[in-house]
């Protein structure tokens, strides 16, 4: 079985994101592997370790080699770089045809990627790719069990609801969390992968799709509630909080 894991780099929201003329300054933006894709890779490798499969990491050329090398160090069997001129701000809908063609060419039985990315305002990659391929989509996945012919995907829907769904391959899975946190790749393994991992190049004929949605401008959020800041000294802050608790009857009413 071939599991193709699509890995995307996205601006790291832990860092400061600078804007230029109302759009993200992509030259300055610190790009990192999408956290959900990180989990998708982990889940794919876990599935492979349990049931045997070939894990193929797939990324756009613009994601950089490091992402693919890391994937190899993490347990991917092959690393494939998709060769196509793609603008950094291309939406998921735009790149989905490329990913779909690549998945076909790689003989994918299962395409796995993150359930979402932090900036995909016009829709997520997993469903767009599934639509391009006309394969079923299983989103919100928190586990993939490939030991049976029809893999079983664990889905979580919030509110503590979850389901086990069996799927006839081929299919696309959007992962929200792997069963365990993504494994640590030691620097030595990473360096080894940097030296030895061969990254295949894959040309695709498909063109970028049109994006019907349009980004007008990006800005910082408008604050909705006015917060009252308490003291930054913990001792004082604790006194203030206990006073608030008293006023609102959360703890025993006043002295005595």
């Amino acid at each position: 079985m071939n599991i193709v894991v699509i890995l995307q780099t996205v601006p790291d929201s832990a860092e400061e994101l600078t804007l230029a003329d109302g759009v993200l300054d992509w030259d300055e933006a610190p790009l990192r592997l999408n956290e959900f894709d990180d989990h998708a890779l982990e889940e794919a490798v876990l599935a492979k370790e349990e049931a045997g499969a070939t894990v193929i990491a797939l990324a756009l050329e613009s994601a950089g080699d490091r992402v693919l090398q890391t994937a190899v160090a993490r347990g991917a069997d092959r690393a494939v770089k998709l060769i196509k001129e793609v603008p950094l701000d291309a939406s998921a809908r735009m790149v989905a045809p490329l990913m779909a063609e690549a998945a076909r060419k790689l003989g994918a039985d299962l395409v796995v990627t993150g359930v979402q990315a932090p900036g995909d305002i016009f829709g997520q990659l997993a469903p767009f790719t599934a639509a391009e391929l006309a394969w079923p989509l299983l989103g919100g996945a928190v586990g993939i069990d490939c030991s049976a012919d029809a893999p079983i995907v664990a889905q979580e829907f919030g509110g503590g609801r979850s389901a086990q769904i069996s799927v006839t391959l081929p299919a696309v899975v959007g992962v929200q969390a792997a069963r365990r946190p993504p494994r640590y790749v030691s620097g030595s393994k990473l360096r080894q992968a940097v030296q030895s991992a061969s990254i295949e190049k894959l040309d695709v004929a498909a063109e970028l799709a049109d994006e019907p949605g349009k980004l007008v401008t990006l800005h910082s959020p408008h604050k909705t509630t006015a917060i009252s800041f308490l003291d930054d000294d913990p001792v004082t802050a604790v006194d203030q909080i206990v006073e608030i608790f008293r006023q609102r009857g959360i703890v025993g009413g006043g002295r005595g």
Binding site: A14, Y184, S186
Partner: peptide, 29 residues
């Protein structure tokens, strides 16, 4: 470390070193 056998906290710290070059998860700038 090669086997990834460490506490979650230590692992998170090492990931911070890998990604940010410091243990505080602070951007380089």
């Amino acid at each position: 470390v090669d086997e990834g056998e460490m506490s979650p906290l230590l692992q998170a710290t090492l990931v911070n070193f890998q990604k940010y070059g410091n243990s505080f998860k602070k951007p380089a700038r």
